[in-house]
């Protein structure tokens, strides 16, 4: 089982994730050359980057200041969500053993705390979805499921690290849920992790490059 899920299945997930994202980007790019002249006509690096950075820095956009708790939780969620899988020492050891490359590793204690933070902030987002009327009315079942799928590798990773519960089952679930997440990236709303940069640049061009107005 370990052999299968960390071998062929993992390769499959990586290929689907990266390949899917590339295919999607190429498709959108070629479509945009035909149908989105407006994207290129008003391109302006200064406005584009300002539009981007105002939404990458906490509380830089005015909407973020209107919902400070959500903003804080949202940033904490995204930061821990991205940093734990990339900088967990055990993951880097696997990278190193298999490909001879690795990133900086964070201490296990920190990774442990950040996993808990991801789970808690993810649950906050889930509850916010349920409790704020203007968010609940927008939400579909798949939006709730996506949050659960996103934090699943962190729940199982957290349990596996502490060896709480049936270790082997949890370990397998950890790997499988991580792979599911990778596969979902190009096909679900998770694709915003890449497309975010393009939509932000566009609105920067559209509001700023074209009209001189802010988009944050």
């Amino acid at each position: 089982m370990y052999d299968l899920i960390t071998g062929p299945l993992l390769w499959f997930s990586f290929i689907v994730c990266i390949g899917g994202v590339i295919i999607r980007l190429v498709y959108l790019f070629s479509l945009s050359r035909v149908k989105d002249r407006v994207l290129y006509n008003h391109a302006d690096a200064g406005w584009g980057l300002r539009s981007l950075f105002h939404w990458l820095i906490p509380f830089a956009g005015s909407a973020m200041r209107m919902q400070p708790v959500f903003t804080f939780m949202g940033f904490v969620f995204h930061l821990s969500l991205l940093s734990v899988p990339l900088f967990l020492s055990a993951h880097n050891i696997l990278w190193d053993e298999n490909f001879g490359i690795s990133l900086w590793s964070m201490p296990d204690r920190l990774a442990d705390i950040l996993s808990a933070v991801t789970i808690i902030s993810g649950l906050f987002l889930f509850l916010r979805r349920l409790s704020r009327p203007e968010v609940r009315i927008l939400s579909e079942v798949r939006d709730y499921i996506l949050i659960i799928i996103t934090i699943l590798p962190f729940i199982t990773g957290f349990l596996a690290y502490r060896q709480w519960g049936p270790y082997e089952t949890i370990f397998i679930m950890h790997v499988l849920s991580g792979e599911m997440l990778l596969i979902l990236i190009p096909f679900s709303k998770l694709s915003h992790m890449i497309l975010f940069f393009f939509t932000r640049l566009f609105i920067g061009f559209e509001m700023g490059g074209r009209r001189g107005a802010r988009s944050w």
Binding site: D36, L39, Q67, K189, S191, F198, T199
Partner: peptide, 22 residues
């Protein structure tokens, strides 16, 4: 009308509801 923008916008809206504030 099915441009790269429309496709992207309709697809990635993560339903956070922040737009309502505006």
């Amino acid at each position: 009308y099915d441009s790269a923008r429309i496709k992207t916008w309709l697809n990635i809206c993560s339903r956070c509801g922040l737009c309502a504030e505006g």
